[in-house]
Amino acid sequence: MDIKRPRRILLLGAPDTGVLELLTSLCGSSPAPVDNSTAGLSHIWAIKTNYYTADLPIWIDEISSLDEWTTEFSKTEAREVITSLGAWIYCFRRPVTQEDFESVKATIKAIQTVIEKAAGYGWDGTCLAVVTPQSITPYLDKPYDEWDDVCREFGFEYIDSEAKGRNEFGEPAGVERLQEAIEATDWNGDDDLDFGDFDDPDEEIDFSSTFAAEEAEMGSELLGLKSSIAHGGDGGQLEDEELQVEGLEKMMSQLQAIKDTSSAMPEAERKRFANTAVNELLKSL
């Protein structure tokens, strides 16, 4: 089964927690940071199992301030973002101090809170808390069972990204377990997130045959949804919508230019060109 419009993954963590390194270990590639930040980046993870195939859109966000992030994602406008997700992957470095440990706990709890506020207790997605390598030594040594208890309390599964092989129960560990958990998630989404109303009604732009097309569509969704969160409320709403429409129209024009430029290229070269061009376009959003 080919899942045409799967739910999304939100990959997030504090700055410099290794989210792109983790993404590379999973997908084999990752987007380049913009101005040393991963906030607002997007990627696609092509998954193929015995039961389905899907190009999973990944949104990447940074939590620079937990209070500000929680406030932003607790807004009514954030509900559309949260309910479109099939998985949350929260990354954090191994704590060096007890204060670091408490900060990780607070973040996991905050994520659970925004999920429940937006989607209720019936949300059926996957929540994974992934610890990434720490360059500072010695770091705070916490046993697996303690981490597991903390994460499960807030609906997360704890995964040690540095673990290899299998655990005592014969289950895969580390990145292999992360991939297994993602593959076991229900990715069937819906078509509610449709930004096609901003297209030129006289010309339908079909990018569905290329990998870059999905990433371009995802970028436009992320632009609209993040704008909705940031500028929610009554004040200035009309002006924000007009700016959003103008931005989307400009982006669609640029995407059409990419399509026209690559149309005469051989397929492999066309896809490479389109991927590079769309990535550069998304960085400018």
Rank of each mutant, 00 (worst) to 15 (best):
R79D: 11
S74A: 01
V81T: 11
Q112W: 02
P95T: 01
T83S: 12
S74T: 03
K75T: 13
A110E: 08
E72N: 04
C91F: 01
V114D: 06
W88C: 09
V114H: 05
T76G: 07
R94W: 08
V104K: 08
I115Q: 10
I115R: 14
E102L: 13
A87R: 00
R94G: 07
V96H: 05
Y90H: 10
E102N: 11
V104A: 13
W88D: 05
E102Y: 08
A110S: 12
T97F: 11
Y90S: 05
L85H: 06
F73P: 15
R79A: 04
P95K: 05
A110I: 01
T83Y: 08
A106H: 11
W88G: 05
R79L: 04
K109D: 12
Q98P: 14
V114Y: 03
D100G: 07
T76R: 15
S74I: 02
A78I: 14
V104T: 00
W88S: 07
F73L: 10
F101Q: 07
V104F: 06
I82T: 01
Y90I: 04
I111S: 15
E102F: 09
F73T: 14
R93G: 10
K109R: 04
R79V: 11
A78C: 13
R79S: 11
E72W: 03
S74P: 15
K75A: 06
I82M: 00
